[in-house]
């Protein structure tokens, strides 16, 4: 018999969102409420399968009476609070955060970055040509995935996915401090010398494309990566009995990357090395 954990019904909390009364279950975040109300608040470091780290600050909103802005992704709704998502103050911070990121990090593969930069009228170029950047060369130290830290916004999602929130491998952590902080294995070692088990769950959660399949990295470098030409097929991994879902991304009849649906109730988008990278036999045509 399968034990299904029952939860007591969650109380509803009522608060004001942009002047309108909204009700959300107790424990819901402001972001949950915004999304339920159809409001589009930008997010980068927030992930549907991870505890928010609220490091990027692009989702800040104004909570009446608070000295500073609050990150919508992690601030829980409280009864009676009055939240405004689109004030000049909140928009200003979002704009500057986008400018700071775009002026220091390569956001070319970050979904929606371009759209938000336009929407918030961010002008990252105004910090000048001399503005300090990440200046990292892609780390290509294995044939499965590439770490291109020039695209890294230090959102901590890969660290959390590798560590205690999912994989429990702890192969990577944030090293250094401030603007010099980088995601690194111990002694900044290459992945083959680290504790990495190549589950690729860090790639799954990376919001900027800093972590990508080697196949994707190579295709992008060759200018051949084209998502319009890709088909996505969700299937079941054939390796073991867990039955993880795989979504195969196929371009020109080749599997170019493997993801997993985050709403899978068992695996929440996580895979192991076999499901994530062990697809070569499928395309072995000899």
């Amino acid at each position: 018999m399968t034990a299904v954990p029952l939860q007591p019904p969650r109380r509803l909390i009522e608060f004001t969102l942009d002047g309108e009364a909204v009700r959300v279950p107790e424990g819901a975040t402001i972001l949950d409420a915004c999304r339920a109300a159809g409001k589009d608040v930008p997010t980068l470091c927030q992930g549907d399968t991870l505890t928010p780290k609220n490091a990027c600050r692009v989702c800040v909103v104004e909570v009446e009476g608070a000295r500073t802005l609050a990150p919508a992704c992690s601030r829980r709704a409280e009864p009676g609070m009055a939240v405004r998502t689109d004030t000049e103050r909140a928009r200003h911070s979002r704009k500057v955060v986008l400018e700071l990121l775009a002026s220091s990090v390569d956001l070319s593969t970050t979904p929606r970055a371009e759209e938000w930069i336009k929407e918030y009228e961010a002008k990252p170029e105004r910090f000048g040509a001399e503005a300090a950047r990440m200046n990292e060369a892609p780390k290509v130290d294995n044939d499965r995935y590439v770490r291109d830290y020039d695209k890294c916004i230090l959102c901590y999602k890969c660290v959390d996915a590798c560590g205690e929130q999912w994989q429990n491998t702890f192969a990577i952590a944030v090293a250094g401090r401030g603007f010099d902080a980088r995601i690194a294995a111990e002694q900044d070692a290459a992945l083959p010398d680290s504790a990495c088990v190549y589950c690729g769950n860090c790639i799954e959660v990376c919001p900027t494309g800093a972590l990508s399949f080697k196949s994707e990295f190579d295709l992008r470098a060759a200018g051949e990566w084209d998502e319009e030409r890709q088909a996505e097929t969700t299937t079941v991994c054939a390796y073991c009995g867990v039955g993880c879902n795989l979504t195969l991304h196929v371009q020109d009849n080749e599997i170019v990357k493997v993801t997993s649906p985050h709403d899978n109730p068992v695996t929440h988008g996580n895979l192991c090395i076999k499901g994530r990278f062990g697809y070569q036999h499928v395309q072995n045509r000899d």
């Binding site: 490091a55 955060v97 990121l101 002026s103 401090r177 401030g178 902080a181």
Partner: peptide, 11 residues
């Protein structure tokens, strides 16, 4: 001395 955690302060 910025720890580097959040973008407004780090950059």
């Amino acid at each position: 001395e910025s720890c580097g955690q959040c973008v407004p302060c780090r950059v």
